[in-house]
Structures are given as structure tokens and as C-alpha cells.
Design a protein around this nucleic acid. Structure first.
Lengths: 208, 208
DNA sequence: CCTTTTAAAATTATAGATAATTTGCGAATC
DNA sequence: GATTCGCAAATTATCTATAATTTTAAAAGG
């Protein structure tokens, strides 16, 4: 566990814990002890507290003042909420990005879809899926919006990993291709509708 | 400056600074010195750092690692971004809240509209306006969504205060009344359309 | 005069100590 | 047996000191 000087210790701890929360290694509801985490990272508890605050800002933990921090639960209600927010915000981002989408971007997005098709496990798939979304949305150039969407992707990933940890089958992502086809044809409305359906699909499948 | 024990010092500092940033007392772009703020509050710099992190999570400041913190700028691009996000998210919240809206809530929302009409200054108006939105949206019972909307209201308030600080005229809020009328008539689609227009109005007026 | 280098000063980040609050357990009471 | 109270232990929050990094100013070189 060697930390490089360019990134602060608090940030490193935050990233490490985020990965373990998202992957399910640290379970929803689990208490995070600042003193124990500090020992684990060979650090003082002060940057651990700062790391907890970062995780809280990402929605991964809940701070219980003076009583510790616990990993945020992730219920089906959360899933639906996240899916709904993603649908609303990603459409907004897509509509603002559409005038700036180039052939190069769309080609790269197609590569990301292909990478997802060939993903060996759920982590690789989630990464390719997120990359696809980032590619088609980033040209909106709205940093607050993109940041919020990214946090929502992280929340989605928690669910994805917990559901598919036992058995993995690569989803053939026809949705991405349909979105790309609509974007290439300049049909932003169709792309937006497809995007909503794509994002809300998991909410609908597991949200009942 | 007396702090009560129930709320942490970091939280208190954060709230005080947030108020001063939103009101414009601390200007966009201004550097916040952790050591100076600590002296001002008679505290150590560690809870000041924690306060800065809270402000960052709210979008009010930008953290420049190892080089300090500065108040987030608020440009017209930001204004448009925030208006767009609010429109998207508030409609989502409203649609999920609508089945749970009672006559009592709508009456209370009407009271809030009236309070806004009689507001003596922009702060009172903003408070009544925010209260109105909170009342009609809270029954969606989606905490992440409501939290995000609240942060966006805070961002909107920054602009409102800076534009209207010199001259104040009470806006007669016909939008709120139209939204309420649609909600009372059970016409959620119309209410949503009106809400979008209401939220995006400032973005459109000042965003060109 | 402009650019680069160096060292000191200033500022931020973290460690370890201390203060404040919460938790847990045993004893007392009903 | 259930509830309440008191106290010690455990845990979190803040303070002070120190370490690490950045900024600034002066000196040196072209």
C-alpha cells in the first residue's frame, strides 16, 4: 500500500473504499470505523474522516454525526430513484451534446459498445457501458450535470455488481447500437427516447 | 459567534460560509484561506477543512488541492446548466409526488405563494419560492433527488441575489398559481410543463 | 532587461494528543 | 423480569504540532 505524493492520502483512501463499497466487498449498512480504517491504511484518522466526507458526497455512505459512518443502503427504491434521475439528466445532457457529436466520437462510442459485448465480467462491462455514456454525453460541456450523472452511474454499478455477482452473461447491447444509429441519423428525439428506455430498463426489470 | 453543542463546529462554519457565498458577500473566485477562516471562527483549521469539503459537495466552492479553496464562479453558462437540471429533475419529482399531493399540501403551497408575493426583499422571496417547490415535490419521497434539487436551488439563489441586489421588485408569481391550479385539477402533464417553463424562465431571461 | 535558480516564507495536509460524546454493562429499583 | 441509573470504555471531533508542498522574493546568469 504505497501512496504517491501527487494525490492526497484522503483521496486515495476514499478511492479505495469506494471501490470496495461499489463491488459489494463492504456490505450496505456496514459501519466504517474511522480508527480501524486509519490503522488499515497506516494513517491518522483525520484524512480518513476527509475520505468519509468524499464518500458521503458521492452518496456511498451516510454520516451519523458523532456515531460514525455507515455504508449507504441500496434498496429497490434507490434503484428506481437512480434510474429515474439518470433518465432525466442523461437526456438533458444528450440533447445539449448532440450538436457537438462528431463521427470520431460516435465511432469511439461504437468501439466501447463492442468492448462491452466482449467483456469477460461485470466489471469490464460496467466500465465499457459507462465509457459509452460518457462519450456521447461529454460534449454537452456542462460540468455539474456530468458530475451528477457520474455519481449516479456509480450508484447504478453497486446494484449491477450485487445482482450479477453470482452468474454472468454478457448482455448484447442492442440499445447502445440503436442510440448510435439514431444519433448518426441526426434524430436526437429518437436517441433521447431510446436512452431513457435503456437507462430505465434495469429499474423496470428489478424494480417491481 | 456562539456555537451550540448539538451541531458540529465544521457544520456551523460550513453553514455560515454558505450563507455568505450565496448572498454574494464572499465573491465568486475569492480564495478562502483555511488558516484565516480558522482564526475568524476561533477554531483549529481541521474543522475548517471539513467545512470546505461540505461547501464543495454543495457546489459552492472549488477545491484546488494543496493550493487552497476558491468560491466557485457562477457564469451564465452555469445559470443555464442549473436551470436545465432543475427543470429535468423537478418534473421527475413532481410526477412522482403528484399521486401523493393532498389538499392540505396544496393549500400550504398557496400560502407560500402568497408569502412570496408579500416578500419585502429578495431573500424572503427566495425562501418562499423554495418552500413552495419543496412542498409540492417532497411527497415524491426520493431523498437523493430532493437533495440534488435543493443544491440546485442554492445555486440558483446565488444568481438571484446578485442580479436583484440593487433593485427589488416583488414578482407576482402567476406561475406558482398556474401550477397549483393544474395540480388541483389533477392535470399533472400541464403542471409539469408549467414547472419547466417556470424553472427555465430565469435561464432564458438572463442566459442570452 | 529578461530568465532561471535558489532559498525563505507562506500555506496546505497529516500525525498524534486531547476533549467531547456515545455506547455498553453492571447494579439498583420497581 | 423489565426498566432506569451510573460509570467506565469506546469512539468521534477538535486541537496543536509537524511534515509536505507551493508561492514569493532575491540573486545569479545570459
Amino acid at each position: 500500500m504505497s501512496y504517491q505524493p501527487a494525490v492526497s492520502l484522503a483521496e486515495k483512501i476514499s478511492r479505495d473504499l469506494a471501490g470496495r463499497i461499489v463491488s459489494g466487498e463492504i456490505a450496505p449498512g456496514a459501519r466504517l470505523r474511522q480508527d480501524h480504517i486509519a490503522v488499515e491504511f497506516g494513517a491518522s484518522h483525520v484524512p480518513v474522516r476527509e475520505a468519509f466526507q468524499r464518500l458521503e458526497a458521492q452518496g456511498l455512505v451516510e454520516n451519523l454525526p458523532r456515531r460514525g459512518v455507515r455504508v449507504a443502503p441500496f434498496s429497490l427504491e434507490d434503484l428506481r430513484e437512480v434510474a429515474g434521475m439518470r433518465a432525466a439528466l442523461e437526456v438533458l445532457a444528450l440533447r445539449n451534446a448532440a450538436p457537438h457529436l462528431t463521427k470520431a466520437i460516435l465511432d469511439e462510442a461504437e468501439d466501447a459498445t463492442r468492448a462491452g459485448d466482449h467483456a469477460g465480467d461485470v466489471h469490464a462491462w460496467e466500465e465499457a457501458n459507462r465509457h459509452f455514456h460518457q462519450l456521447i454525453l461529454a460534449p454537452c460541456a456542462m460540468p455539474r450535470l456530468l458530475r451528477t450523472i457520474n455519481d449516479l452511474h456509480t450508484a447504478s454499478a453497486r446494484f449491477l455488481f450485487s445482482v450479477w455477482r453470482a452468474e454472468w452473461e454478457t448482455p448484447t447491447d442492442r440499445d447502445h447500437r440503436a442510440i448510435l444509429a439514431a444519433l448518426r441519423a441526426g434524430d436526437v428525439d429518437a436517441a433521447a427516447t431510446l436512452l431513457v428506455r435503456h437507462v430505465e430498463w434495469i429499474g423496470g426489470k428489478y424494480g417491481r
